[in-house]
């Protein structure tokens, strides 16, 4: 039994890893893990120290007593809580809206026949290669002319456009057996029913991946909120935290506390949906 297991589970790129290979791999992975995690652990350490004590050398890795001042200041004197709520609200709103918009478009592209289908497909592919950072100037004026600058809508509306989501969902829908839709149509389903009762339930993993992808994209965005939002109360987390650094005397303790707390929402999401984050689907997402 154990013999069979080790055979079927055997990694392929190195069929029978020798002891030396295995050891090397573990050393590499341990080193990578240390490099990955150290910055997080270090800001944990600095966030519970007074900023002044940062400059002592050699450093005091684990302070004798925990200093809560940075966190008190973060919630007392900055809009950190608002930034977090804004980011979550906007992220969720965009994710939900984009999910339905993209799924509908992907359904049409994957399952329906219409005039201009090829043109739209090509346009979407081309649009993937358009750098969104290059569009902030015209977007600023478009949003301004709509009177939406400095509002949540300024962040939500342009974010509904990323064509990658449509292409990704299309590839999920294309892989569904066509007979299911044919059968549903013969059973009396309208196209909307085919979409909502057949396609959507069957591409659930794709929808989750799409949602994660969209949320992450929004959660990590920086340039556009920086351009479109002036009011600190309406700002998102990324821009808010970066504004902490613009003071003349930088409060490093405050920044490390903010950075540390800013990792929490996405970490929770990650823990809840780990399976999807680490699955091949996620990587398939970018292949469209």
């Amino acid at each position: 039994m154990s013999l069979r297991r080790s055979f079927t589970n055997r990694p392929i790129a190195s069929l029978q890893p020798t002891g030396a290979m295995m050891l090397t791999a573990y050393v590499v992975l341990c080193f990578a893990s240390i490099v990955s995690l150290t910055p997080f652990l270090y800001i944990l350490s600095t966030s519970i120290k007074e900023t002044n004590s940062l400059f002592t050398y050699p450093p005091d890795w684990i302070p004798a007593s925990i200093y809560w001042g940075n966190f008190q200041k973060l919630f007392g004197e900055t809009n950190f809580a608002r930034w977090t709520l804004n980011t979550l609200f906007i992220g969720i709103a965009i994710t939900l809206l984009k999910l339905i918009i993209d799924a509908m478009a992907a359904f049409a592209l994957a399952k329906l026949e219409f005039f201009g289908k090829n043109l739209i497909s090509v346009a979407l592919l081309l649009a993937v290669a358009v750098p969104v950072a290059a569009l902030v100037v015209p977007l600023f004026f478009i949003i301004r002319s709509m009177g939406l600058l400095n509002s949540y809508w300024a962040l939500i509306l342009p974010a509904l456009t990323n064509p990658l989501g449509i292409l990704m969902l299309r590839s999920f829908i294309v892989s569904l057996p066509a007979d299911l839709d044919h059968s549903a149509r013969l059973d009396g389903a309208s196209e909307w029913q085919v979409f909502s009762q057949m396609t959507l339930p069957l591409i659930r993993p794709g929808l989750v991946v799409h949602a994660i992808f969209t949320f992450m994209l929004q959660y990590t965005s920086f340039l556009w909120p920086l351009v479109a939002i002036q009011s600190d109360k309406k700002q998102v987390l990324t821009v808010g935290i970066s504004s902490l650094k613009s003071n003349f005397v930088v409060d490093w303790g405050l920044i490390s506390a903010a950075s540390l707390l800013a990792t929490i929402p996405i970490t929770l999401l990650f823990l809840a949906l780990q399976k999807y984050f680490l699955s091949q689907n996620m990587s398939g997402a970018i292949k469209g």
């Binding site: 044919h182 059968s183 059973d187 309208s190 069957l202």
Partner: peptide, 20 residues
Amino acid sequence: TLPRNRDVAMVFQNYALYPH
């Protein structure tokens, strides 16, 4: 006529059962 309005029922080779 749309398939849904044709009053025909079809049995597919691979059954096309709704898996969900």
